[in-house]
Amino acid sequence: MGLPTDLSTMIAVDIGSAPTEGALFPVGKVLVSSRALSEIRSAGEDIRSLVTRHCNGSYGDSSMSEVFENQANLSSGEELGSIFYLAEKYDPDTALCVWTNPDRTESYMLMCEEF
């Protein structure tokens, strides 16, 4: 997936204690783009629940090939990604990407268009 090169506008969010029950991997520090934060709030979604779903292996609305890739990446220690549609399903304007880096020290939430 790869991150955008400019991460200077990312906002660190406190999600409380890291999700652990059912978690397949740690998410580390959670950084959210200002646009994603606005879209999440507008949709009435909760950052913590989205992060929990991501680290529990739900991977949201990711394609089957992306789910299989994540399953393989869990074993090999590679990046993990999820896609969540915040409003109209399959509307690219509402697609949120959640990405956890390979060393599991940071996770990022951006609108998919920002990648």
Rank of each mutant, 00 (worst) to 15 (best):
D46C: 13
S34E: 13
R104K: 07
S33V: 02
Y59R: 07
L24K: 11
S63K: 09
C55Q: 07
Y85K: 01
E113T: 00
L86R: 02
L50F: 10
S8H: 07
A95H: 01
L50T: 07
C112R: 06
V51S: 10
I47F: 10
E79S: 10
R104S: 10
D93I: 03
E88L: 04
T105H: 08
S33R: 01
M111W: 03
L80M: 04
P26E: 15
A72E: 08
S49N: 12
P102K: 04
E45Q: 12
L50V: 09
F68N: 14
E45M: 12
M64P: 00
Y85V: 01
V32Y: 05
R104F: 06
A87H: 07
V30H: 03
L74C: 05
A43Q: 06
S75M: 05
E106C: 10
I40C: 14
D14P: 00
F25P: 01
P19T: 06
Q71A: 15
F25G: 10
S58N: 14
A23T: 09
A95N: 00
S33A: 13
C55D: 09
Y108D: 03
M111K: 01
Y85N: 02
N56W: 07
L7G: 15
K29P: 00
D46E: 14
T20A: 15
E45N: 11
V67C: 09
M111C: 01
R41W: 02
G2H: 09
A12T: 14
T100D: 04
V13P: 00
M1P: 13
S65D: 07
L31S: 14
A95D: 03
M10C: 13
L96N: 03
E88S: 08
E78R: 06
D46S: 14
S76E: 10
T94H: 11
P4R: 13
G16F: 11
G22L: 02
P19H: 06
R104W: 02
A36R: 06
E39H: 09
C55E: 11
L7M: 14
T105Q: 07
V30T: 13
D46Q: 12
G44Y: 03
V27M: 08
I40V: 15
T5L: 11
M109D: 05
K29V: 12
R104T: 05
G81Q: 09
L110S: 08
N56K: 15
L37M: 10
V27E: 06
S75W: 02
T9K: 09
R104N: 04
M1Q: 13
E79I: 04
A12Y: 01
V32S: 11
H54M: 02
W99G: 03
D61N: 07
G77W: 00
S42G: 00
L110V: 14
S42Y: 02
T105N: 12
V51K: 08
V32A: 12
F115C: 14
S17H: 11
A87R: 12
L37R: 10
E78Y: 01
D61T: 01
L7H: 10
C97A: 15
A12E: 15
I15T: 12
V27C: 15
T94L: 05
T100Y: 03
S63I: 05
T20D: 15
E106R: 11
D14E: 15
L74Q: 04
K89M: 05
I15E: 05
F84Q: 01
L50G: 08
R53F: 05
L110D: 03
T94V: 04
A18E: 14
A36C: 06
S8W: 07
E21N: 14
G16V: 11
